[in-house]
Nucleic acid binder design. Structure first.
Lengths: 143, 143
DNA sequence: ATAATAAAAGAGTTTTTTATCTTTTGTTTA
DNA sequence: TAAACAAAAGATAAAAAACTCTTTTATTAT
């Protein structure tokens, strides 16, 4: 469905949203172990997300990753688009570039609906909201 | 969404269903150009599908690929499961192995519905049916 | 100032996926 | 039975994705 990179990114963002609260920060080591991902790999991914200002960080003692007000409202859809691009949301199910409304592949219309449902769902999955919901029920981010 | 291999496989199966009719057969060259895929690559994929009896073939002059009665009823879901496995239909959206009904990830329930819709859609997309529908409207399998 | 800490950056390596090329085997028809 | 044809099989090669290691830079606290 999504690339491994993208899965790690979503998990890491949720983990940060959950654990870096009230000015506190989380380090890569904690993130990596918290979401069960390779440490250096998730570090790279977070660097990317940082450059795009989707996550904030500070160096040095007590440093780590956290989310500012804007970042905490980011949706999983945004993360997916950033990492995997939007081919998931716009691409053809059979991989046809020319597939479109006027030039549909055999399963174009059915796929369109599913893609749209997925997009809506991921757009609604904003980090702050997920964390709030998870407070009610126990949560799991380990693979 | 699906691997390239899987996309080619689906396109090739549809193409064969469409073009190998009334005992005629289609060769890899025609298939490759018909679905715009690398010739040797789709040949390999069809070999795999052939071993699993999802497509029939014969060598020599006038040889090529075709579908027997059973194969022509195969669904795209079957093709996807054969090539990409069933992680698409059963796996967690965040890539968590332990995600389940009793141990759900933050987006488990929403994803479950989408996966189910996708599965239903692909199960209904049987080759014979797709070809019938395509006869009504023009079709495109080139990328 | 200096030592410790932690992310950023850069430079690989490994594995998987995608794609190509060559040889072999089986089938048909002339 | 020989030549042509077409898929099967096997072996490589190229590209992308996943992952690792080392060095640098910025920050904090002593």
């Amino acid at each position: 469905m999504f690339s491994k990179t993208c899965e790690y990114a979503m998990r890491a963002m949720i983990f940060i949203a959950q654990n870096a609260i009230d000015g506190s920060k989380v380090g890569v080591k904690a993130i990596a172990s918290g979401i069960d991902s390779p440490e250096h790999f998730i570090a790279k991914i977070l660097q990317d997300l940082g450059r795009k200002n989707m996550v904030q960080s500070s160096k040095g003692p007590n440093g780590g990753f956290y989310l500012d007000e804007r970042s905490s409202k980011i949706s999983l859809a945004h993360v997916v688009k950033t990492i995997d691009g939007d081919k998931f949301f716009t691409g053809c199910g059979l991989g046809l570039n020319q597939c479109s409304e006027s030039n549909p592949c055999p399963i174009h219309n059915q796929f369109k609906k599913i893609r749209q449902d997925t997009l809506t769902m991921l757009e609604n999955a904003r980090l702050d909201r997920l964390v709030k919901e998870m407070d009610l029920s126990p949560l799991f981010l380990k693979r």
